[in-house]
Design a binder for these strands. Structure first.
Lengths: 245, 245
DNA sequence: TAATACTTGACAGTGGGACTATGAAGATGT
DNA sequence: ACATCTTCATAGTCCCACTGTCAAGTATTA
């Protein structure tokens, strides 16, 4: 057992070193010799555990996605609200990248466009997120939450593309300190996208914007007119009054 | 001169072949021997023109960005409208990628995350676009077109990240036929983003949504009340009446 | 037409890094 | 103590980027 434990830490040390070096340089520029020195093992040991350099590369996302990603998907079916479910998906997606900077650099800058990566579990997890998002958007369109002419694919690209772009630029600038984390930008971001695609509730009729003075004058009139006042109470669904500030 | 012409076509043939092979496989998987066969020249000739394989790679964006990109920037200073200028920037950005699929695959999937690429003219052109966009957004916030609490960096990442994501996914799926080009998605896309960040005109007062029946009743009242009716004419700036459908 | 310079190609060779094969040294379990 | 399993060092293969050289065009000039 002590043997197994040591083997495990050895394997982990190799993967840690590899992740660091792959992310900082790049897969092609990194050499096995360099990784072996960083991990404190011989080159032969690396070939022992991972047949090839490429296998070592792909062992990394496989491991990390198993560890961190799956669990956050379990709650989704319990969120009935479409927008809430979308927020949860985005949250877990951001968490995945925010939890491990080296890993997100590796995935977003190098693996994402790699053909073999697309056949890994890690990519399948990302695809599941993408697919769930698409489902949410379609459901929102179907049930009237979103505008019927919204393009579900476009919306999804907005959601995922923006987040990826934020991470990619952060990495390319050498991961500087930020006053706002990407996680903290999620809600303002979602508000912009969602407010842009929500269906307008009152499709027919009139919309009136009144300043405070006019609003008071109108209030006087309504109070003095019993006919309209009673209507205001009976037809609540089709009439909304919102106060600003 | 005939010599110069032949040399030019030879050099171009090499770059064309290289672009195709780099984009379809990848820079690392492509071999000089393969490119030389595709271009119909000897390996030595490639080393004659481009010292190294990497130099050949970077000669490609240098050439293409010189050819196509610069001109579309010239019009920008003449567009006074902030949103129109943003649209023009996005348009030229999309055009760059839409004009040459091989090139956009190379840039977006391989070069974008490459350190050396960031020191090329091609990347400088992209940075100029990004910078102009940021300027537009800031100007829009400053002059009241956009909400004062909008995050300019976030907006820019939305604009560029979405477009890049759309192209990247199109490439990763093997560039299937689309019923809508990315160019055609630009205006719906911009409408979502911009409507999400435009400043609301009436910050104070009341907003009333009325169905048709109630609107008619209110119309009656307003017609019979000279005080409020005169107000409606004098205070036009702060009061808007929009008819839906 | 002859001489000169420049372009292209064939070929041989170097070097670096991924990967293999092998056997010795050490650690572990019984 | 013995067998087994892990780790390492060494030596060697293969592939591919890249260099150097020389010969064969091809173009330009005298």
């Amino acid at each position: 057992m002590a043997d197994r434990v040591r083997a495990k830490t050895r394997k982990d040390r190799i993967m840690d070193a590899a992740l660091r070096i792959f992310a900082e340089k790049s897969f092609q520029e990194a050499t096995i010799s360099e990784i072996s020195k960083e991990a404190g093992v011989s080159e032969a040991t690396i070939y022992e555990y991972f047949g090839t350099k490429e296998d070592l590369l792909f062992a990394i996302p496989e491991k990390i996605s198993n560890d961190t990603y799956e669990e956050s998907e379990a709650v989704l079916p319990f969120i009935k609200d479409v927008e809430g479910r979308m927020r949860a998906i985005m949250l877990s997606y951001i968490q995945l990248y925010e939890s491990n900077p080296h890993y997100s650099a590796l995935v977003l800058l190098q693996l994402m466009s790699n053909k073999r990566f697309r056949q890994t579990q890690a990519h399948a997890a990302i695809r599941r997120s993408a697919h769930s998002l698409l489902d949410c958007i379609r459901e929102g369109i179907a049930n009237g939450t979103f505008r019927p002419d919204a393009d579900a694919y476009l919306i999804r690209s907005m959601l995922m593309g923006t987040i990826e772009h934020l991470f990619i630029h952060w990495h390319m600038q050498g991961m500087p300190r930020r006053e706002k984390t990407i996680m903290e930008m999620l809600d303002p971001f979602l508000e912009i996208v969602l407010s842009g695609i929500r269906a307008k509730k009152e499709q027919q009729g009139l919309t009136l914007h009144l300043n405070l003075e006019d609003a008071r004058a109108l209030g006087q009139i309504l109070q003095n007119d019993p006919a309209l006042q009673s209507k205001a109470e009976s037809a609540d669904a089709s009439r909304t009054i919102k106060e600003r500030n």
